[in-house]
Every structure is written in structure tokens, then in C-alpha cells.
Amino acid sequence: MNFTLLKHEVLATVKLFSIILAVLMLYIISIVYMYNPEMSNTLNKLTETMPELMSAFGMSNIGNTLIEFLSTYLYGFLLLILPLVFIIMSANKLIMGYIDNGSMAYLIATPNTRFKIVFTQAFFLVASIFILLSITTLVAILFSKILFPNELDLSAFLTLNIGLFFLHFAISGYCFFISCSSKDLRTSYAYSTGIPILFYLIQALSNMGGALGKLQYFTIYSLFSPEKLMTQDSSSIWMLGALFLIGMFCYMLAIRVFVKRDLYL
């Protein structure tokens, strides 16, 4: 690991990180604030009037407890998409950004192996996602404790967030791999944005149920199931394992590809 490079990346990413974090916190706080057992009745009525649309965004089952309420409103859309934006932008910048504009030449013309450079960048990406999700989790817990003491099932909520981290770990591995292996920045952005969005849309369609339900086997988002994680269902263990393996595999492949590839710098 190269700490000079790590420090540089921290400074270069702090702006994007803060914006994403600020938006997430704003939503988390307002949604916790919105929680009100009576209020859910109104929302339930809304779901009854347009069930397909609401279920597409994973909002089919508005529970009566705080954690179910949070999982419905945050873990179906916001906490999937906003971290994804951060992942796509960072993953592309961390490797392909330098290759595409040519400044990678200066990085690897220093006495640091390519492995050291790419490992530093991968570490930075995983660490920043971990920190982002840790802060949002802490904020959600703190705010729930203040507004509704004893309402939140803490262990279920933590499991839910661990699942979310593993999901983003897997997706970031894929994006990082694309960043390391593409020929230019445009291709890299196209694949690293296109595939996750496509997966999300497939997930949305499969949520509508019926014949479309079969689509759940064609999207990575099926491996993140808030209901199963919250109930700590045994199948959630292998889902976490699968996400972890996908992520590790992608990161290892990405590092290998970057170390071996031809660079026109």
C-alpha cells in the first residue's frame, strides 16, 4: 500500500463523498422523522391504489415497526442508488481516470509496483464504501434512539446494514474490474453504469411479481433481501457469502488484469 497515493485519493474524493453522505443523511433523518404508526396507514392506502408502482421500488410491504418502515423506504431505492453513484464515479476515477488522461504514466514511473498502486486504489474504494455505510447506519441508529427510544431492533438493523455493505462490495468489485480492464474512460463508464442499472431495473420488474418474478434469478440485487436479513433467516448467510465471493473474485481479477495489461502512456 502506498500512503501518499491513499492520502491523495482521500483529498480528491472528500467532496463527492460529503455530498453523497449529506443527501443520504438528509433522507435518513427525514424518513425516521416521518415514522408514525398512524402515518403508515395513509401510505398503505397509497400502496393499495397503485400496487405495481410501489412494489417496483420495493415498497410493497410497509410494516408497522420502525425497522420495517426504514427498510421499505431506504433499502429499496435510496441506499442502493446513491452509494452506487459514489461507487461508479470513484471506481472509474481511481484507475481508468489516470489511464485515460495519461497521468498513470507518472504513477507507475515511480518505484512502486503496479500491484502496489492498484491495491491501494482497491483498498481505498472498499474502505470509503465501508465508512460511508457505517456513518449512515450510525446516524439512523442515533436518530431513531432520540426520536423513538426502544423502537428499533438493533441487531436486525445491523444485519441489514452488513448485507447492504456486502452488496455494495460486490458491485464495486465489478465496477473496479471494468475500470481496470477497459480501453478508455467512456467504455468504462458505459459498462460500469449500464450493468448495475440494468440489474436494478430487472429487480424492479421482478418485484412486480407474477411471471416477471422469474427475473429475480438474473440480477445481483436478489442476493440482498432486507426481509431475510432482518429476520436473520438462514438463507441470508449464503447470500452474504455469495456477495462476498463475487466481490473478492472481481477485485482479485481486476488487480491481476491491471498488473498484466498493456498501458499506452
Binding site: 495519461g102 497521468s103 504514466a105 502512456l265
Partner: peptide
Amino acid sequence: YLPGEIAFID
């Protein structure tokens, strides 16, 4: 090493 393409971290 001086690269042929002039590129830095802008």
C-alpha cells in the same frame, strides 16, 4: 521518464 503525452493531475 518524460512521457510523450503531456498529462498531469489537473
